[in-house]
Design a protein around this nucleic acid. Structure first.
Lengths: 199, 199, 199, 199
DNA sequence: TGATAAGCGAGACGGTACGTCCGGTCTTGAG
DNA sequence: CTCAAGACCGGACGTACCGTCTCGCTTATCA
């Protein structure tokens, strides 16, 4: 019987049996489901394995720990949807806020954030390649804004990043805001823009 | 020999042996220390018990879980230092930002937030009396601002709360800002004020 | 309202409120019942207290530990029924064997024995006044037999005691023999008598 | 590096990681030591684990309770030393008495019996494979004696077993007899033999 | 009669020990 | 080198229970 094992792009073929790409997806999907159902604390790797139809060692071959798995599962993105650099700051800010709400507005996102804060590591992104990518792209877009003097003097990239992601995170975590709540997106984006734009 | 076990104020004595008030203090103190040393994940109730000179059951009699203990330990405040309602919004906003940075700028604060997010519970404040107090006071002060039209139309209390605490959290968690960083306090407070004040 | 609290004999009246004699009975009764239902390990002082309609401190005022309570409850006897010194050794041996079977043939007796063996104490009787009384009376009766040359030379009191109580205990504990099993009483008594009687 | 973990014989390898055979030994050894030092009540599974250099779950994987562990540890025998069926009843009875004294003459043996009695279970041997073996061999030897008419009519196997082990237990538990006390061995064996042998 | 002293129910407390859950590792046998 | 299957090790957890203690009250003896 011939079945395509759906392997990712074209990595130079390593010796031995190749990894079953469908397992990656099944594991991630199971993780997200269980994260929504039980939260970070209630998540069990055994449960993930069972729902994904595999075993724990198969998970550990892919991610080195529970937190890594959660991060990878939640921040699975191609990166393009985070910041569409349209050239218009207002539009892009709304996009970023909406992205943050989308991520943190669901239980899985809260769980991922919890995992992120729970360990005493300073550098965000050192924990997840995907998260690092998002962070870097956001930074680049905002650095542009600073360079183009779209924001007033005294506002730097780092401040912009906190102003954007922080309120979105809080709104999602505390008040249950989601990406569908256009009111929240509007209000946060508006306040940030008014707070930083050059006069 | 009768020795006073340092019991709290004068509550009408409940039946049963009263709790040893010194244990409460010792447990909270040990929790904060260990939180700073090892973070939320690394925190063990057994370790807390050992350092506090007691045992885990004594902790469980007081708090029902690790997250509750952490919340109680971190948000131990009289509530007065959170918002000094001076009547001047700019001053009070700076105070609140500084308070947020103070809390989230230390590992213990991050850990508390992690504990809050790790379990799938909706209502903040339903988890900790002390946190609820802080939250309520902050809300009252900001509701005043809304009533007095110190902020422009379209800005409500909840939005204000996210704008205040969110960036402070991010600055602390990602960039290592602390309450001593007057630059961070200034910048965040300024941006928020400019973003919401009535024209 | 005048109710006789059924106090035991005439002890020189101590100051303070006298003990409620009915509690003693209720506690002992509850202990025996629960011992039969759950065994020594499964016995809880809280359960005893509840069934006796009282509280644990009332129990601890009377017996200093769980094992003491169990011993006292099981070996409650006036001592007269242990050895009726009829002058006829055969009769008295049968009585003693029957008494042993009666005690150890019920779950409560097994439990008491377990409690006795579980702690590293050499001297039987040092643990329970009542047990000590039984033991002493048995010894006295058998010493008589030795003195009267009812047993052959080389058989001493201590050997007699082990020969009497040991098999009864084993029969009860392992094979479930009870005092009603006249076959067991007969066989054990007969074997012992034949084994020790003077020719 | 591959190191042989000293696994028992050559059983057809079950799926899963094999058990570390050295832990079994260490646990049993620690149990016996602590039993002698502190008795059954004073024995703690945590203490056993610590001395054996492992943890409690490892113990629970092997034995389901404290009593089971104690039984297994104490009655670790090949069974051959219990009854050397020499054909001569007198010799074999002495051997059995000596074996009983050896077992019950040390705290560990008493503890095992305590564990056996502490829980309300009927069938001895259903609790420990090793004990069952001992019990069965003893029974077989004595059944022989009955078949060969070495004992008088009316004496059956079960009675013989109680007569043998009971006095030994009592002598050991109450009077501190050990297997080295040839006097005790002689006296008990003699009395039993005279009590049961055919005329 | 009042003071002293011990008992009572009620119930919580401190701490030892328990038994379990689960994260992460390892083994076997097959592919 | 991967897979499924499954057991193992040990850190940490949350609980059961023993024995103690405090409270507010009752019941006795002694002054």
């Amino acid at each position: 019987m011939i079945h395509d094992v759906t392997n990712r792009p074209d990595v130079p073929p390593r010796p031995g049996r190749p990894r079953d790409g469908r397992l990656d997806d099944a594991i991630v999907r199971a993780t997200l489901e269980l994260l929504d159902e039980r939260g970070f604390t209630g998540l069990t790797l055994a449960a993930v394995a069972e729902r994904a139809g595999t075993t724990t060692p198969a998970i550990y071959r892919r991610w080195s720990s529970k937190s890594e798995l959660v991060l990878a599962a939640v921040f699975r993105t191609e990166g393009d949807d985070v910041v569409a650099n349209t050239g218009d700051l207002a539009t892009d800010v709304r996009t970023m806020v909406r992205w943050s709400l989308a991520k943190f507005g669901q239980p899985a996102g809260r769980a991922a954030l919890a995992g992120l804060l729970a360990e005493p590591v300073g550098d965000v992104g050192a924990r997840s390649d995907q998260l690092a990518l998002v962070w870097r792209r956001t930074g680049e877009r905002l650095a542009d804004a600073v360079d183009q003097h779209e924001v007033r003097a005294g506002v730097d990239t780092r401040l912009l990043m906190t102003l954007l992601s922080g309120p979105a995170l809080m709104a999602a975590a505390v008040f249950g805001a989601t990406a569908d709540d256009e009111v929240w997106v509007d209000q946060i984006a508006a306040a940030v823009l008014m707070g930083v734009q050059s006069t």
